[in-house]
Design a protein around this nucleic acid. Sequence first.
DNA 1: TGAGTATGTTCAG
DNA 2: TGAACCTACTCAT
Length: 277
Amino acid sequence: MPEGHTLHRLARLHSEYFAGGPVRVSSPQGRFADHVVVDGRHFDHATAVGKHLFHHYEGGLAVHVHLGLYGFFDTHLVPPGEEPPAPVGQVRMRVGAAAGDGPVYYVDLRGPTRCEVIAEAEVVDVRDRLGPDPLDPDADPGRAWARITRSARPIGALLMDQKVLAGVGNVYRAEVLFRHGIDPFRAGSRVTEGEFRAIWDDLVQLMEVGVETGAIHTIRPEHDHGDVPRRGADRPRNYVYQRDGWQCRVCRDEIVLQTLEARTLFWCPTCQPERPR
DNA sequence: TGAGTATGTTCAG
DNA sequence: TGAACCTACTCAT
């Protein structure tokens, strides 16, 4: 479920597992030949920017991971003296702490869009291409506002543009616009600065909850009627995402699915009217 | 068993 | 704008 909160959570966990010692890096699938460059190196720490994850190694090298639509990490905790489980399926990269006295963590990466060794200077390049990240305490939301307020593109598209805001995906996009009663098709130039600030502040809070819990929770307690998610038991509990055809939790009108810039958008036309209330 | 779907990005045309 | 990438899950047959 890779939106920005997932990557920040992974960065935090991988730092806990591996920072401060050498790691073993392999590519059971064989598609990450550069693993030999970092295998056995000292793992400094892990960071995340938007939907990008970096493993920083001594000597100015980093492994850059982007999970794309399907990618994910499996984690194994192996008791002292035991061998890690054989990789199952297509494991692009396996990282394991070098043997110590205690249990050893292994993480298996599957299905990423990107997994490559780069120089630290290129990490800066990636960061520079991205808009401010709500999960970065030093982020400057003014950079995002400057782009939004002079754009004719719909706010629903701008929020998902990683050059405008880093880390927001389809779920947070849909949910935050609902929570603020904003029509996703309204042009960025017609969003007020007050509305944008409220969206930013809400994203900071919602995504921090996501990092803590590992799941996207956007529904206020007074709107939680205990109904079953649309598909699968682990679907996020929320207002509009993947609830098309269902009653809106607030107004009881129907949640609508539309395509916006080639991505599915979920919204409530009644609660998110064309003209601001 | 197989089709359809998915929280994303990049590249060709 | 559409295809490609790539993996797991759900649902229909």
